[in-house]
Design a protein around this nucleic acid. Structure first.
Lengths: 67, 67
DNA sequence: TAGGAATATACCTTAAAGGGTATAAATGAA
DNA sequence: TTCATTTATACCCTTTAAGGTATATTCCTA
């Protein structure tokens, strides 16, 4: 899941949400809402954050029980 | 890539963009912009469309030369 | 326990995503 | 070539994502 991925990666690098937001060039709000699993985020903003970890949004087979 | 995935899937099922939009419950515009590779789409709208093909947005390792 | 840092909520504002509609351009079959 | 279907552009309008800021809350650690 996106939020879990981000939280674990962020912790692994010992970044604060603010660090991430700054590094990614997005508002603190986006990082927060990503970690809280908000569904209506814009892809470009999410991708800016994921890029910090060499990742991005892509099409994957739907998992059952993920939400 | 998201746009390629959608175009090929849509063709494979012989759907029009309008079909997809209706089935997914999104505006025709979203389907068009998805196929045209717009980067600022909302994740929830994209997921509504992808769900028709048992897929969804997920975190993947960044590909080089994808854009 | 404090006290400070990190995280969460809440509010205001702006830019733009998305719906709808109309029209234009492209595609494809008879 | 038609002519209908599909796809692309353009416009208006409403909603809301996202930035910024302020405040509240949680979570440490000394």
């Amino acid at each position: 899941m996106l939020s879990e991925f981000l939280k674990s990666k962020r912790k692994a690098f010992n970044f604060t949400q603010e660090d991430l937001a700054n590094k990614a060039g997005v508002g603190l709000r986006v990082v927060r809402e990503m970690e809280q699993g908000k569904a209506t985020l814009r892809m470009d903003k999410v991708n800016q954050v994921l890029a910090l970890f060499g990742s991005e949004l892509g099409v994957v087979t739907k998992q059952k029980g993920d939400e």
